[in-house]
Simulated assay, not measured.
Amino acid sequence: MNIAKLARDNRASLLRIALLLALVLYFSANRAGFLDTGNLFSLMQAFALLGLVAFGLSVTMIAGEFDLSVGAMVAVAGIIAIKAGGSGAAAGLAVAVAFGLGVGILNGLLTVGLGVSSLVVTVGTQIMLTGLAYGLAGGQTVSYENFQVAADVDQVIATIFSPRSLVAIAAGVLVWLLLRCTRLGRDIIATGSSREAAAAAGARTRTAVVVSFAISGTFAALAGALLAFSLLSAAPTTGGDLLLQAVSAAILGGVALAGGIGGMAGVAVGALTLTALNNGLSFIGASDAAISISNGLLLLAVVTISAGGPARLAELVRARIRRPATS
């Protein structure tokens, strides 16, 4: 094992955890009630949506691909869950998740079958899903009248959790086990690291890509359906900025855009960091613009530090100081 690489990975992991703790300490010191159980429950409810989507999206990124359709999937899956849930929420949930799984498999098959970039495939899927969401909902918000379903999915468990947040945590654990303990998981990582080398070594690269998209579509649909039952409504505009949030959570969590690098523990920390930042800023009355700017600055800072930006800048400064002056 490369000791230097291991040291860098450990430093990056410690940085992410330190950042999350710093945010929690800052907001708890500057706003009474931030650590109250009610607000922590709200924070975990936000994580239930962002974390679940980020876990699925991260698998495609680790495989060296990208799923642009997750935000639109959240919207359309929520509408499908409500429309198909007339006879029971379980039926609506099953139909929505099956739809997400099918679209995810389609994304994967088109990507490997046509040999084109997943960005091209999933931008087409995103447009299609957005149109489908507006068509199914008639351009309006659709409602669900079974109030018990909302009470069930948002039931308080162990003070700060709910079934929704526990589902997100369980999904992250399952993907962690997949990547760490199965041949398929190793194939996904190898595919993202170097597809040609992985194929030459016997890795099932095509299967890895299809499975990664299947996971992404399923998780996004599950997140959308559970959110719709929680809110007792769904709209075509739901999840408008969710893609950017999920990408940010993945990158903050150490997932490389080039593929082959990343883990679910880091993604969980990244999602919690963003939810803590957004929750804390909302708690102190920050505007939506300020929250968006803070999200972007945070991502830039973490990426710069993780890439050794400050060290490189210091080296450039030292080199400039040592360089002899020219007349």
Results as ranks from 00 to 15, higher is better:
A197G: 05
G185E: 03
V173K: 02
L179V: 11
S194Q: 08
D187A: 10
C181F: 15
L178F: 03
S194V: 00
F219N: 09
A208G: 10
V211E: 07
T218N: 09
W176Y: 15
R183C: 00
V173S: 04
T205W: 00
T205R: 02
T191Q: 04
S193K: 01
A197H: 02
A221F: 04
R195Y: 00
F219Q: 09
A214T: 11
V211N: 07
S216M: 10
A199F: 11
I215H: 12
L174S: 15
R180E: 14
S194D: 14
A220Y: 03
F219T: 10
A208L: 05
A190G: 13
R180F: 06
E196H: 08
A208Y: 01
G202H: 14
I215E: 08
V175D: 06
T205L: 04
A199Q: 15
A197P: 11
A197L: 05
T191H: 04
V173M: 14
R206N: 14
A197K: 02
A198H: 08
S193C: 00
R180T: 13
C181H: 14
A208M: 05
A190S: 14
G217T: 10
V210S: 06
R183M: 00
R204T: 00
T218P: 07
R183S: 05
G202S: 12
R204M: 01
V209Q: 01
R180W: 08
T191F: 00
A199Y: 06
T182K: 02
L174T: 15
V175R: 10
G217R: 12
L222G: 13
L184Y: 01
S212K: 06
L222E: 13
C181M: 12
L174A: 15
G217M: 13
A198M: 08
A201N: 11
G217L: 13
S193T: 02
V175T: 04
F213V: 09
G192M: 03
R195I: 03
S216Q: 09
R183Y: 00
F213Y: 09
S212R: 05
V210A: 08
S194Y: 01
L174M: 15
T218D: 11
A201H: 13
G217Y: 11
T191N: 05
A198Y: 03
L179A: 10
S216L: 11
T218C: 13
E196R: 12
V175N: 09
L184D: 01
A220N: 06
A203Y: 03
R206Q: 14
A201Y: 12
A220T: 06
V211A: 14
F219C: 12
A190N: 10
T218Y: 09
G185D: 03
A203H: 10
A220D: 06
I188Q: 05
E196I: 10
A201P: 14
L174W: 15
V210Y: 01
F213S: 12
W176E: 11
L177Q: 06
L178N: 02
L178H: 02
E196N: 09
V173R: 04
R180K: 15
A208T: 05
G217K: 12
F219K: 12
A201F: 12
G172S: 13
L179T: 11
R204E: 00
T191E: 06
A190H: 02
D187Y: 02
T182N: 01
T205F: 00
R204C: 01
D187H: 09
